[in-house]
Amino acid sequence: MYNKEKTTSTLLHALYDNVTCPDGWVPFLQQIAVHFDSPSATLRITDRENPVVHQSFSTGLDQGLDYDHEAVIFDPFRASLANGPLGKVHTSSELISDRAFEHCDHYQLFFRPNGNFYAMGAQFERDESSAMHIGIHRPRSRGMFTQQEKAQLEDLSGHFRRVVQLTRLTNQVQVALTQAHNAFNALSFGVWMLDSELRCQWHNRAAEDALTAHCFGLRQRNGQLTIDENTAGAALMQASRKLKKGESQCESVQLSASGASLILFGSRMAALPSSWKVGHSATIIVFLLDPHMAVLLDHARLKNLYSLTAAEARLVDLLVRGLDVTEASAYLHVTTHTTRSQLKSIMQKTEVTRQPDLMRKLLLSGGLVNYE
């Protein structure tokens, strides 16, 4: 006897466990084919108007005319799937008589070589130009698909749609993460994403190079960012504690007399309930700044966004490299009074009141960095 709840539960586990992974449709199709006592099943994305297949997954179809490029032209079920209600399951025996199907090109060129005769399927997702549908097939000897089997497949149609939407969203997130990683990798200075215990969650190429060369004593031990020099190492731990307690949102650790330093920012992530058992997440962003390392900001964008003058843009370049006001004044051959006046103007234009906030705005605004 058909147990709707048990059947749906079993197939949903297979659907969500498999299809949210890359190339997971084929393992699911194998399971759903077995469930419906069928040797083959397909999932395809096709053009809504023309006999064109954009993407196809299948199991059990190893012989006969290639559907994706040839047999799709002869498919007598395309119009019914495309014009019927979304999620409505159709069976081949409802759409065409056995005798008529037996003499049609689609059966002779595609179904017969694969050992199949009956089919059922549904179109469950559509956009402006394409649609996604699932099909299940079996030999004539196993009998036509029943109303009960139609009901089982229709029970799953809404879940097919949700899985596709979930997969699409996951892909969008992955693309966004890849773009963000590429942007950080294009930076000439090191960037680390750390948890509150300084365990590294991610770092860019410049950070990897700094760790490999042990620049300024920077190392990664047991996944944790450390500094060989005792004073700097202690300062790094103290900075992380202050960020963790919320006593500060920005800390710096001097690495050398030449002005090289680490700038640590506390990320503003919402706290998760303590009952949630989740892995360590990145809560600290660290930048390695070295006055001897060129960090080129896009002056044209600075001018467009904040109306900075050429002199103010030159000062910002030096501040981002880690120089303080006195060092920047000496480098630019101007008085500290002039530099302080320019800094005050820059902060007004960028709408910040503290120098660490200015650094945060410049460093975290990826669009200001000229990657070319």
Rank of each mutant, 00 (worst) to 15 (best):
L12C: 11
K150Q: 14
F74G: 00
H333D: 15
R199H: 14
D209Y: 05
L297R: 02
E247F: 10
G190A: 12
T339M: 05
T178L: 10
H159I: 03
G87W: 00
R360M: 05
F111G: 00
R314A: 14
R48C: 08
N370R: 14
M293E: 11
V89R: 03
Q147W: 07
I96G: 01
I136E: 08
Q220S: 13
H35T: 11
G115V: 03
L332F: 02
N370M: 11
M1A: 14
E351G: 00
A206P: 03
T10A: 11
L288S: 00
S275D: 13
I227W: 13
L297D: 02
Q249S: 12
L211C: 02
Q123W: 02
T339V: 15
S157T: 15
V191S: 05
T167K: 08
L302V: 09
S188V: 04
V320T: 04
M293F: 02
L95F: 09
Y331S: 11
T326W: 06
V352E: 08
V253Q: 03
T59M: 02
Q108A: 02
G143R: 09
G367K: 12
M144Y: 08
L358S: 05
F57Y: 15
E49C: 03
A300M: 09
Q238G: 07
L358H: 05
R301H: 08
S240H: 04
I32D: 01
T309M: 03
H333I: 05
D66W: 02
T46V: 14
F110L: 01
A257W: 04
M193A: 14
R48W: 03
T91E: 07
H203W: 02
A271H: 05
P22L: 08
Q31C: 03
K245F: 10
